[in-house]
Amino acid sequence: MKPLIKVMLFLGAAFALTFILGRILGILTVENVNHWLELAGRVDPFWLAGTVVLLLFLDLFVAVPTLTITILGGFFLGFPAGAAAAFTGMSLAAFSGYGISRIWGARAVSFLVRDKEERQEMAQAFKRNGPTMIVLSRAAPIVPEVTACMAGATNMPFAHYVGYFSLSTLPYVLIASYAGSISLPDSPQPAIYAALALYAVLWTGWYFFRRNSRQPVGN
C-alpha cells in the first residue's frame, strides 16, 4: 500500500501546485469563472456550454472549482443542459488523464518507485482499492484527476474505469446542476444545501472505506 500512497501523494502535490499557482496569479478564481460564464451567456448558449466544458476539461491541467462550475452551469444553462455540459467536460478531463497515463504512466511510476516488486505491489493495491477510490473521488478536489491517472498507469480496463467514473460523477453532476438551476442570486440555498449533502455523503463513504481498509485480513 505504501508505494500506492507515495505515487498518489506525488500526483496530488503536482495538481495542488497548479491550484496554488492559479490562486496566486488570480486566474481561476470563483469570481473569474462566474464572470466568464456571464460573458459567454450573453453571446450564445452554445458558447456558454462550451465554456463550461472547457473549464472542466482544464481541471486535468490546472485545478479549477469543479463543484462551483457545475452549479453555475446549472444556473446559467438550466437543467439538464447544464448537467450535460458539466459531465462532458469532466469526462474529457478524466478520459484524457487515463489515456495519457496509460501511455506514459509506467515510465513515471518507474522513476518514482524504482523497485519492480514495489511497483507490482502498487498495482495490486490499486486493483483492490481503486474502484472504491474512483467512486468516492468527488469528495475532494484533485482526487478525481489522481485516480484517473492511477487507473491508466496501472492498466485498469477502460470499460471498468468508465463504469466507476460514471457511478461517481453522474449523481454528482445531476444533483449539483439541478440545485444550480433552481437557485437564484438572492436565494442560493438549494446550491448550498446540495453542496453540503454531496460532501457529507462522500466523506461518510471515505470514512467507512478507511475504517474497513485498516482491518486485518481475515476479520
Rank of each mutant, 00 (worst) to 15 (best):
T18Y: 07
F10C: 12
G22L: 04
F19M: 13
M156P: 03
L58I: 13
K116M: 08
L112N: 02
L92Q: 09
G152E: 04
T66K: 05
A13R: 05
W36Q: 10
E117P: 00
V109I: 15
F10N: 07
W47Q: 07
M8K: 06
L167T: 08
V62Y: 04
V146C: 08
P157E: 07
W203E: 04
A125K: 10
N219Q: 12
P171D: 12
I134N: 04
D59H: 05
R128A: 14
Y193P: 00
M156L: 15
R214L: 13
G89S: 12
L56V: 08
K116F: 08
A14V: 14
N219Y: 10
L136I: 10
T154M: 05
N32Q: 15
E38R: 12
I69Y: 04
D186Q: 10
A81R: 09
L55Y: 03
G105H: 06
M8N: 07
A86P: 01
L92E: 09
A93Q: 13
V43L: 14
A123L: 01
P45W: 06
S110T: 07
L25Q: 05
L196C: 08
L4S: 00
V43I: 15
A108S: 10
Y199D: 11
P190F: 10
Y199W: 11
F57I: 06
F19L: 14
T68S: 13
R138G: 01
L54Y: 08
M133H: 04
L55I: 15
V217R: 14
T70M: 14
N32G: 00
V64N: 02
G205H: 01
A159F: 12
E31Y: 06
H35W: 09
E118L: 13
T169R: 02
L60Q: 12
L39K: 09
G205I: 01
F208V: 13
I20M: 13
R114Y: 03
F46L: 15
K116C: 00
T88H: 08
L92W: 14
C149N: 06
